[in-house]
Nucleic acid binder design. Sequence first.
DNA 1: GCCGTTTTCGGCCCGACTGTTTTCAGTCG
Length: 602
Amino acid sequence: MNNSEVARLLRDIAAIYTIKDSQKYFFQILAYQRAAETIENSSSEIKDLYNEGKLKDLPGVGPTILSYLEEMVKTGKVTHFEQIRKEVPEAFFPLLLISGIGPKTAFKLVSVLHINNKDQAINELEKRAICGDIAKLEGFGLKKEQQILQAIREYRHGKMKSIRMLLPFADSIAEKIISHLKKCKEVLYIEALGSLRRRIPTIGDVDIAVASKNPKSVIAWFTKYPYKERIIEAGSSSSSLLTSGGKQVDLMVQSPWCFGALLQHFTGSKAHNIHLRTYAQSMGLSLSERGIKTKQNVKNKYLTTRNYNKELGLFEFEKEEDFYNCLGMQWIPPEIREDSGEIELAIQHKLPKLIELSDIKGDLHTHSSFNIEPSHDLGINSVIEMQKKAESLKYEYLGFAEHNPSSNNHNQYQYSRLINARNDLIEQCNNSIKSVQLIKLLEVDIKPDGRLSIDDDCANLLDGMIVSVHSSFSLPKSAMTKRIIGGLSHRKARILGHPTGRLINQRASFEADWNEIFHFCKNNNKAIEINASPSRLDPPEYLTREALEIGVKIVINTDSHAVDQMDLMKYGVMMARRGWVKKEDVVNTLSFNDLIKWLRDK
DNA sequence: GCCGTTTTCGGCCCGACTGTTTTCAGTCG
């Protein structure tokens, strides 16, 4: 059972309690919803957390829910859940998936309309809506009936494309919306928020915040966005639309005086905000997207008559930094606002200084078009073109790491001839552009038995090797662990490329004992690559953090197969920041001379 | 059901929008 299935099960339980007695079970309902939320957003699978004994560390998971989760991992079901599910009709659950239908509405519909078949529930509901049966029900009306029909259509459509967007795709939607909004002269500041600002590898919907003295006209302008399917809602301070591609965009507008509070609120994550507000409450403060209300007589240099809004009865914050400072905390970088220890450290003013794009001095994993007759894909740009791009990025050095020559039609003599020819080309280019030093690397396959695809003589022609898994992804965990450590054991193997092999929305990470691998890396001075390719963003951030705790060095690479892809370094850096990486953890922030020393393991 | 910078008991994040209501309930983020 994967995380989203577990989350759905917990939400189903919350829904049942809502039906049973939403007053009596109010806090249980909140608890189940909160646990569902954290599990849905966890970057590691429940099964893995269970195996590592870390389930109890999830915020919102206490003794009771923990025991249910353990039962679920061990047996695949939870007896208590199965019993309680019997208290409502089976057809109740599928209706919860329709946007705009919550527990109360779903229960009313299945009961009054006598919808019994779970598999046909949505079809049945649609039929009854078309007949006009829903508008007649008490508490419903014509609009509600139309809304349900619309939502069912979008649910069916969305099921095909409910896959979350890759980050660059969401970035491009945000850019289009932002450039549309910037044409409105009432827009003072504008920024993308939510998971986009936290730089999560996949994005569900796009959140945009605007500061304006005239929210109504901004929202009116927003609803005129040309590439929309329809407007979902439009109020006085927020609005939502569906783009023609079927993606939801939410807009929030506030006055410039409380833009800081708005940024904070809609950046999330939800778990971060709940923790922050609970903490604020203990100080007698109440937080919202509009500002901070004081419950008792709280004194604080950020609570002044100057930023007090008498009309609303709250203190306003133009800058997000002041909002955090008011709580006695450091400003927290959006990438780590996941309630995984950042609030505690911000209170102690001990947050790490995270790496930035400008710290990067070179890219060590790029593929040129030099025909090395590789086992996998060749790059499309020449060494010199890549080198010029590196120069424009102000890099000190650039590593070429083409795939090794394919093993089925080359012998080791042919390998060395090809590698020498590639090296000669690199030497020539090195002499022509002096500002960017080129490094002779190779991306070498780790075979299933842990051996590398080239021999020692060939390896000696290189400054170092990136070793990667490109085949047999489903080896048993212990065999995969042995394989990777085997590949890294070579003296010239310096970096583990795209460590878990995941392809977002396409292929899951393979299984390996990362604790063991990271300890091997630490003890033998090997680095873990953070691969910046948007469909990889590998490893996931929780593994990066684990590697750092053990003391493993990191390399951030683009794995570029073309010059344009060299711009994707920013995604690797964002991924590193989500894993709490600092400049000093990263090998390719070193100067050229220090990097060469590291490559030679000295 | 969860949780701890007052607490292992007694609290629990906060507000916007819509539809069907004539003062509020349900849903969502």
